[in-house]
């Protein structure tokens, strides 16, 4: 049994969680996103911008959840793929003048190749080391971005990257939100399919008991590598969404701080649930952009929230909410 699910106590599987209802809930989630985007479009451009960021960070966190929650590989270097994709796409459009439809795939390819190189080393290491080696490797990329100023613009980064043109230029905040919401929905559904597939089940098996999976004849190393490449692909998509949001990429997109933040989003939301990461992403964006306007001590507040979650909802926000919801239903309507 997965230790961080164990912590929620015994959760009896109810018919509520059957496959059909999962599909229904997925559709409900998509409808929810459309509603949120619609509602947001009527707000000012700043709330729209924040909701766009929540979706991008949520996508980024979900990609990390493939590793942390489903494969049991906690990474502290996930910003590497986010940043490499953004840098590569930015360089393609700035230095080579490539259009969006060429630059964006090149960026994603760069992220996947980076993941391949990193994981050839990182996946060899023993349990517990993955976190540290990914941290160190990502730090190498950050160092290059800061010091190779001719290519990367150093800590001033690269700016002036135009937003994609899809039918019409995605200039306004609202039209870009629609674009990101579309990318998010398609990516999220793809990840959902992946974790529900036999491949995803094999990943969970590796997380729970790798020696047993090996004994069953699985080449676990190959599974972990593919999971890493997929995680890098979706992280790259998130990185490019962020690139086009502000037309800017800098070393902060490769920084350890970002890797730590996205890991926190996954852990706080609930590792191994994919959609829990949305809660983590929303909390982070609210803290960084709204709480910081009211108090200089916002980092303390953020730390305290993480500590409280670790203590009182160690499995994350989503299971915690589900449990509350189940209790509420039980108290209201008996056992239905």
């Amino acid at each position: 049994m997965n230790p961080h699910l164990e912590a929620t106590g015994t959760r009896v599987r109810r018919p509520l969680w059957t496959d059909r209802s999962r599909t229904i809930r997925l559709l409900a989630a998509v409808a929810g996103i459309v509603l949120v985007v619609l509602a947001a479009s009527t707000l000012g451009s700043y709330p729209v911008e924040l909701i766009t960021q929540v979706l991008i960070y949520a996508l980024f966190a979900m990609s990390l959840d493939l590793l942390v929650g489903y494969t049991g590989l906690p990474s502290l270097g996930h910003s590497a793929y986010f940043g490499v994709a953004a840098y590569a796409a930015a360089l393609c459009s700035l230095k080579l003048g490539l259009p969006f439809w060429c630059a964006a795939p090149v960026g994603l390819l760069a992220a996947v190749v980076t993941a391949l190189l990193f994981n050839l080393i990182a996946l060899r290491t023993a349990r517990g080391y993955y976190l540290m080696i990914t941290l160190a490797l990502a730090q190498v990329l950050w160092s290059i971005a800061v010091s190779w100023t001719d290519l990367t613009g150093g800590d001033n980064g690269l700016s002036g990257i135009a937003r994609p043109v899809i039918g019409r230029p995605l200039e306004g905040a609202a039209s870009y939100l629609w674009f990101v919401a579309l990318v998010f929905t398609v990516s999220a559904m793809a990840m959902w399919r992946i974790v529900r597939s036999p491949f995803g089940q094999a990943l969970k098996g590796i997380r729970e008991n790798e020696p047993r999976m090996r004994a069953l004849g699985y080449e676990t190393w190959r599974y972990k590598l593919v999971a890493s490449l997929l995680a890098a692909l979706f992280a790259g998509i998130a990185g490019e969404c962020f690139l086009y949001l502000n037309g800017f990429v800098g070393p902060s997109s490769l920084a350890v701080a970002l890797s730590a933040q996205v890991l926190l989003m996954v852990l706080m939301g609930a590792a191994g649930t994919l959609f829990g990461s949305m809660i983590g992403a929303a909390v982070f964006v609210v803290l960084q952009n709204i709480v910081s306007s009211y108090t200089d001590r916002w980092l303390f507040v953020m730390g305290a929230i993480y500590v409280l979650f670790a203590l009182y909802a160690p499995a994350g926000a989503l299971p915690w909410l589900r449990e509350r919801w189940a209790r509420y239903r039980n108290s209201v309507g008996g056992n239905t």
């Binding site: 890991l263 852990l267 706080m268 980092l299 953020m302 730390g303 500590v307 670790a310």
Partner: peptide
């Protein structure tokens, strides 16, 4: 995993 969440939270605090 919750341990990482906790100690990172303390790092910020």
């Amino acid at each position: 995993l919750p341990q990482s969440l906790l100690t990172l939270g303390f790092l910020f605090m």
